Computed example of a mutant assay.
Amino acid sequence: MIDHSGISVTDFDRSKAFYEQALAPLGSSFLVMVPPEHTGGVKVGGFGKDSAAFWLTEGTAQKPPVHFAFAAQTRDQVDAFYQAAIAAGGTDNGKPGLRPHYHASYYGAFVHDPDGNNIEAVCHAPS
């Protein structure tokens, strides 16, 4: 349903480094930096697998913070996302595990990014 989306971040380079590390276990990487002449000098870049689907724009962070859930193919990827995001400076907002109150096979992990956004990796596959 959603083709792409993004957030504003207070420190582009810090957030870029965080997301590069956190999203790597899910198979996503930093794909494109928009030339500054097209953005009025504002740093804008996108992450994804084949095309940019998640964008960072340097500016004022959203208030209140937002929530993004990234798809994982396996529970091991959810675990690896959580570990990578914490190692990259994220803060725990829910260790990896089943969330049966959402759905019987909902396995997710939650981390706050450098601007306080609730970032999640989720796998819906049964064990």
Rank of each mutant, 00 (worst) to 15 (best):
Q21S: 14
A72V: 00
K63L: 06
F12N: 12
P65N: 06
S51Y: 14
Y102W: 06
R75M: 01
H103K: 07
V78K: 15
H112T: 08
K95R: 14
P25T: 13
G116R: 03
N118I: 04
N93P: 00
V78T: 09
H4E: 04
H103A: 13
A72N: 04
S127Y: 11
H103V: 00
A61H: 03
A84F: 13
G45A: 03
S28A: 12
L31D: 14
F18R: 03
R99I: 09
T60K: 11
A22I: 13
F68S: 10
A85F: 08
K49R: 13
P36M: 03
K43I: 00
G108M: 04
N118K: 12
G90K: 06
C123Y: 09
G59T: 03
S15C: 13
V9G: 03
K16G: 08
Y102C: 09
S5H: 11
H38F: 12
G90Q: 09
G89L: 01
E20T: 15
G48L: 00
H112V: 04
S51T: 15
F12G: 11
A121M: 02
A52W: 05
A52H: 02
A121K: 01
D115H: 02
Q21R: 11
Q83H: 14
V111R: 01
T39L: 03
L98S: 14
A52I: 01
P65F: 08
R75T: 05
G108V: 10
G108F: 00
A17M: 08
T10P: 02
V44R: 02
G46V: 06
A104N: 09
F70N: 04
A61W: 03
E120Y: 05
C123P: 07
E20A: 08
